[in-house]
Design a protein around this nucleic acid. Sequence first.
DNA 1: CCAACTGTAACAAGATAGGTTACGTGTCTT
DNA 2: AAGACACGTAACCTATCTTGTTACAGTTGG
Lengths: 158, 158
Amino acid sequence: MRRDSRLSRMLHVLIHMDRHYKRATSETISKMLGTNAVVVRRTMAGLRDFGYVRSEQGHGGGWELARGLDQITLLDIYEAIGKPPLFAIGPSVDQPECLVEQAVDAKLGDALKEAEALLLERFRTVTIADIAADFDRRMPEGRCNIHGDIHAEQSASG
Amino acid sequence: MRRDSRLSRMLHVLIHMDRHYKRATSETISKMLGTNAVVVRRTMAGLRDFGYVRSEQGHGGGWELARGLDQITLLDIYEAIGKPPLFAIGPSVDQPECLVEQAVDAKLGDALKEAEALLLERFRTVTIADIAADFDRRMPEGRCNIHGDIHAEQSASG
DNA sequence: CCAACTGTAACAAGATAGGTTACGTGTCTT
DNA sequence: AAGACACGTAACCTATCTTGTTACAGTTGG
Ligand code: FES
Ligand code: FES
């Protein structure tokens, strides 16, 4: 299975939007993420529907934050991208007839539910601002120089 | 992503082997699991390599338990099938240059590591005998009647 | 030898995240 | 009004991974 990277990507984008852009187009964001503008629109549509970002069409349009990063948790974003499955393992059938299999899946399910609860609890208590603060510690100057060209063209326009 | 069901399947098989079969062929097991004999050999090869089951070739051969279910934990089986990835979410790139992305992945990775540790700890402390005991509580008579035909043909030969 | 097994390689099928193309619609500038 | 710019979305392709299938080689017991 290929790992779903949408949560990671959205967090990445939101921090960049807060730190470096007033408004960013799907094209600009796609370059940051190393992907395609359509993928960006597709994924960020969920965030827009939940009110974390706004999108505007037409000339001069693009994406912008709709609230502060301290008002958005990891759980918010996880839900906004559609609550994709967290685990890569699980039972082979949903409603097994075999009682042995039922016992196996029940026990396995208990362990998975515990782990899921812990994970979602972490998601619930960590805001994107917390992650941004970690970034500030790694780069006190607050400058990202990896994609300088992208940043430059945005500084001019926004 | 399709969920890896090998752990669930192997637990299922091992309990049936302990409760109903002295020895079972891949063909018989594949019917229990609703799959193919080659898939059974492929998956159980790992369990054999780790010494949880024995296989014998040739006429009258098949699979049998190499130790008691109370001597095998879920973690043992998880490792024997090759420690497949537990999570379906993760970062998009392994070594991101962008410091923002590094901070995101670090925070996300912390949460995932915590959940993984909890899950593996549960796996470590639960034996297959524990699951079998749950099965006994669900079906006190100790009989499985779903695949009676399979059980019957095995009772005759083993 | 022959039948009944496992061992394994090679390939097909099914599912899903992600990438790409195409086109529609809205909005700002000129 | 025209045209450039940008989002919205459907449709399709690609990559990857688990699972299923076929084929065949090797092993064992009658
Ligand atoms: S995408 Fe983070 S510095 Fe360019
Ligand atoms: S597979 Fe469990 S009763 Fe047949």
